[in-house]
Computed example of a mutant assay.
Amino acid sequence: MSGRPMGKVGSMAVLVLAQVLVLSLWFISSATMPGMLAEAGIAPARQAALSSAVQIGFVVGALASAVLGLADRFDPRRLFCLCAGLAALANGALPFLAVGGDLAIGLRGLTGALLAGVYPVGMKMAAGWGLRDRGFLVGLLVGALTLGSSLPHLLAGLGGAEWRGTVLAASVAALVGGVLVLRAGLGPYHARAVGFQPGAIALAWTDLRIRRAFGGYLGHMWELYTLWAWMPLAAAASFAGQMERGAAGALASWVTFAAIAMGAVSAVAAGWMAGRIGKANVAYGALLASMVAGLATAASFGGPWGLTAGLFVLWGIAVIPDSAQFSALVADAAPPEVAGSLMTLQTALGFLLTFATVQVAPMLAAVWGWQVVLAGLAIGPAFGIVAIWPLREGRGTGAG
């Protein structure tokens, strides 16, 4: 690692940019699916597998990282760089393989596993730079995740049916992000574990505050990635009754980009608010807003396209701000030397849930329609609201 590590502001700026670039790998198959379908027929189950393979790969990687304590035992910058570089190579092989084939699905799973060394590791680094402003700092990382997740849709919108160039562009971005993070410094609250501590993850159950934060996060994850992964198809299905199919698909891509990208702004704004009204209060408000926005979007499905598009964007704004606060609540409650492992475990369990929801959603939509599926996503935030209710600011030891 050459050069002198940066201070707080510079390190956070570098870390955020690196996350944006690397996380562009996450939804690349979803964003380029129309181009792939135009070139080759891909069965619905394989379409779902290309997206859900990333989720289950992330779960496997994150569980292994949490148990082994990788984020707490090693220099997180080098771990981030290594995983980002390998993920970029795995993703970069996709244009040269059979479209939707077994090897392509396997590489998407490998990419997900490697991203477990990027996103949770970045949160560990961010949490090391503050205490009172930890919700804001982690919010910056979630905003970066959100913006990075929107980039493939922007690239796909610009590149049209030429999906291979979009995939390769995302890989180059990830390589740049992996190298860039080496310039970041580690904050004064960063702590390193002295050795392998597998028992540390038991705190996820035995510590009430951590357990409730985990529960709220699971409710949040019930809807988040299903919405992000399938918004292009669901929105296109809603718009198709009022415009030509190609125009509906193009509009759906732009709506999806806008919804996810604007969520990045709301994630950062929520982090700023968390330092003033409490992390759990912000998470509670976001869960409630997301539940209402989701039900309203489902109710408008098939109606005026402008109304439905606007509600999808509002849902995208509401669905993400609580994510950082659940991680920050875990970091607050956990011993600093094992906080990385517990945040990694939290994300692993959340993405394990998304593997089921992302995979099942298009199958349920084929039977009941996207309107019913969208309405069913409200179950998640409702559960999350119940889980974190006692953690709200001013309610005993659970103050956020």
Rank of each mutant, 00 (worst) to 15 (best):
L295Y: 05
G165S: 09
A298H: 01
G241N: 11
A84V: 05
A267P: 04
G157N: 14
T111V: 14
L107C: 15
W305L: 07
V373L: 08
G92N: 08
M273Q: 10
G157I: 14
V20T: 01
M363K: 12
G199N: 05
A116T: 05
A93K: 04
F74V: 11
P336W: 12
T308Y: 08
T297Q: 10
Q47E: 15
A45R: 11
L233M: 09
L37C: 03
A98D: 14
A193P: 11
G101S: 07
L17G: 06
A269Y: 09
S51C: 09
I42P: 14
I385C: 09
W254A: 05
E393P: 14
L137Y: 04
W389D: 00
V14M: 08
G199E: 04
S253T: 15
A237S: 15
G316T: 06
P335G: 12
M125N: 00
A366T: 04
R46S: 15
G187H: 10
W368P: 01
L218D: 01
D133S: 13
A113N: 02
A156M: 13
A193I: 08
M6P: 00
G165C: 09
V176E: 02
G139H: 05
G177A: 10
G350D: 03
G101A: 06
A293C: 13
G159W: 14
G396V: 02
L79Y: 03
A156V: 09
V176H: 02
P381N: 11
L203D: 02
A280W: 03
D102G: 15
L89P: 14
L147Y: 02
R164G: 10
A66D: 02
L186C: 03
W163V: 02
A318D: 05
I42M: 12
G302D: 04
M363Q: 14
G117D: 03
G109M: 07
L345D: 01
L203Q: 11
T347R: 00
A293T: 07
W368T: 10
L203S: 13
W305A: 13
A339S: 15
P390Q: 11
R77Y: 01
L97D: 11
A170G: 03
Q371C: 08
V268T: 07
L158Q: 06
L203T: 01
V121T: 14
A270C: 13
L182Q: 10
L186M: 08
A286H: 02
L391M: 15
L140Y: 01
G57Q: 00
I260Y: 04
F196D: 05
R108C: 15
D322Y: 04
S149P: 06
A365H: 12
W222H: 12
L224N: 14
A293G: 06
G10L: 03
G310P: 03
T226I: 08
S171L: 09
F239E: 00
M231I: 13
G177N: 07
G310H: 12
L158R: 09
M221H: 05
L307H: 06
E162K: 07
R392V: 10
A309L: 10
P390Y: 14
M243S: 04
S2R: 13
R132Q: 10
S238D: 04
F239Q: 05
A259T: 10
V181T: 04
S253V: 15
I56K: 00
Y225A: 11
R183S: 12
G249M: 13
W222C: 12
R108W: 08
A213Y: 07
L89Q: 05
Y225H: 15
W315I: 00
